[in-house]
Design a protein around this nucleic acid. Sequence first.
DNA 1: GAATCGATATAAATATAACAAATTTATTCA
DNA 2: TGAATAAATTTGTTATATTTATATCGATTC
Lengths: 256, 256
Amino acid sequence: MSQLQARKLSSGTPLVGRLRQTATNADALVAQILEGILSGEIKSGDFLGSERDISEGFEVSRNTAREALRSLAALGAVEVKVGVKGGATIAAGDVEAIGEALAVQYCLSDVPTDEVLEIQSVLEGLAAERAAEHATPQDIERLEGLLEEAEELVGDSTAFSNSSLVFHAAIADASHSQALVMQLRSLRYVIWPPNSTKAQPKVAKRVLETHRALLEFIKNKDAAGAQEFMRDHIEHIRNVQRKNVKNKRSEDATYC
Amino acid sequence: MSQLQARKLSSGTPLVGRLRQTATNADALVAQILEGILSGEIKSGDFLGSERDISEGFEVSRNTAREALRSLAALGAVEVKVGVKGGATIAAGDVEAIGEALAVQYCLSDVPTDEVLEIQSVLEGLAAERAAEHATPQDIERLEGLLEEAEELVGDSTAFSNSSLVFHAAIADASHSQALVMQLRSLRYVIWPPNSTKAQPKVAKRVLETHRALLEFIKNKDAAGAQEFMRDHIEHIRNVQRKNVKNKRSEDATYC
DNA sequence: GAATCGATATAAATATAACAAATTTATTCA
DNA sequence: TGAATAAATTTGTTATATTTATATCGATTC
């Protein structure tokens, strides 16, 4: 299947599947393509055609087709190229892209940070466990490099915080589980929002020690130990966070 | 902040934050509003104005403003109403909405089902644990009702499969953790795609027994037991799935 | 006085047209 | 052969008009 089959959208011809009752033509088009992706009918790399092709195929204006494509692009479902041989193709999955979308939802939903940290705890624990089992020498090398780098940054709280973030992400990478990387990526923005307050040097030193100990577990291939240690690490963060919320001060964050 | 502050987008006036170098005006507008949401500057319920307001405020055409709004709507960030007092408002977070977006990414990324089931295992385990601790009498009642309902459906594999899906979701609900509900919702489509093959009656009966036992743990407020039992439940599914993949047959699924 | 019906204004949804900008392909000339 | 150029295609953007959906206000009716 390399060319999307068009179906008339007007009221006369009922949609075959009609799973969703959409208000607008553009939404119907989006729903139809998403359905195709979720059912496996449409795969990454399939060419949808140019805006004109789509608008003619579905018998809508180019404007409506454009809006549908923008919606799909926002979801990371299609990629659009301009020029000759341009047009819309079904995108390859982007593990990074979806994180922001989920982060927005978390922001708007007022999900308690405590709940997120609880999930973070089990998922990062799993990541540490798998990292201990599957980390390659290159992974270890990278993690060691990040710790050395972090050592230099103890004074610069912003830089240290970012570095810690990368360290945690690197452990997820070392687990060699795409699903874990994706899931943790989606939580990242919630815990470490761009403008959160940063750790003080004293705290930074303790965090650095913790990360060092964690890496030792992974180097020793002690999966159970790595998991437990990581969980404790996150639970500690969670407790501090809880205390901060209780005292109604959001400064003095000890993330990472 | 109830009215979005417009910033000129043309090349002459640089964006203040300019975190993202966006190709199109519509993307710039989207990025700016998302940034506002992530930074807490814009909150749920804030009114962005009508399409015309936005197009004039940002000095773009109404069409471009529309495209930006459609992108934001696709992410579940805004809601658009027509008519008098219509226009775009920042949406309340929708725990349901984001699931599909993540599911699409999982589909397009070819993330191994085994990896997803591993995550499912720890998250559903956590959900069962929290459900055992926090389930209300109403939650229990609902779960019991679902099991009774499922009993009638052992013969109808499709209906039974759907019912099982709802049972698992209901346990997540009973955990009273929005974050868990959201995260599990995002995995749902991956494990139970709409057109997956369904459990045979014999398997369905065994699944039903398992669910009954699980509910007992929850009713007895045995958190640790519920967690372990749920993990085993998912791990069992995972093993069957693994065996099926090995034998290259995707029918005979024993999900739920 | 309250409820219903209708006119009106607002705003999105859609369609069409036109032009600009980008990008690939084909052509031409050195 | 190879580089510059022209042409064709397709998105990006704007403009305008028409249709449809919704709320508000007022008049009519019970």
